[in-house]
């Protein structure tokens, strides 16, 4: 069983990368990976509650996030610094743990694989 960290660093609706990456994370969990997801920089915009992707015919990221616990993806983390800088109030369900930069350093260092360099 590998420790897999999926990193989401871009805004959710500029392209479909975030949705595709979340699908990969779910599959990782189905294959018994120890899956974590880190939202950092503009990726934290994915954590706003009450999004409506269906209005532009896309998957709604906030709904996908709500489904993650069903796939036993429960280790969700966000960069505290990125949230503060953007003055965001993020979703409370599912639970997302805010991490300092030092904590993110430890999270990355302990992984077997890190997936999701984005643009």
């Amino acid at each position: 069983m590998k420790k897999m960290l999926f990193v989401i660093s871009n805004t959710p609706y500029a392209n479909t990368h975030n949705a595709e990456l979340l699908e990969a994370a779910m599959v990782g969990a189905v294959f018994d990976g120890i899956v974590s997801i880190l939202f950092r920089d503009d990726g934290v915009y994915s954590l706003l509650p009450d999004q409506h992707g269906e209005l532009i015919g896309q998957k709604t990221i906030s709904k996908m996030l709500s489904a993650l616990p069903t796939y036993e993806v429960e280790r969700l983390f966000a960069c505290a610094d990125s949230i503060t800088k953007r003055a965001l109030t993020i979703t409370s369900s599912p639970e997302v743990v805010a991490l300092s930069l030092a904590e993110q350093t430890r999270l990355i260092a302990e992984q077997d694989v890190v997936i999701g360099a984005q643009l």
């Binding site: 077997d112 694989v113 890190v114 360099a117 984005q118 643009l119």
Partner: peptide
């Protein structure tokens, strides 16, 4: 080295 982490923001 491992992991190998890509950064492309």
């Amino acid at each position: 080295h491992n992991p190998i982490v890509s950064w492309a923001d």
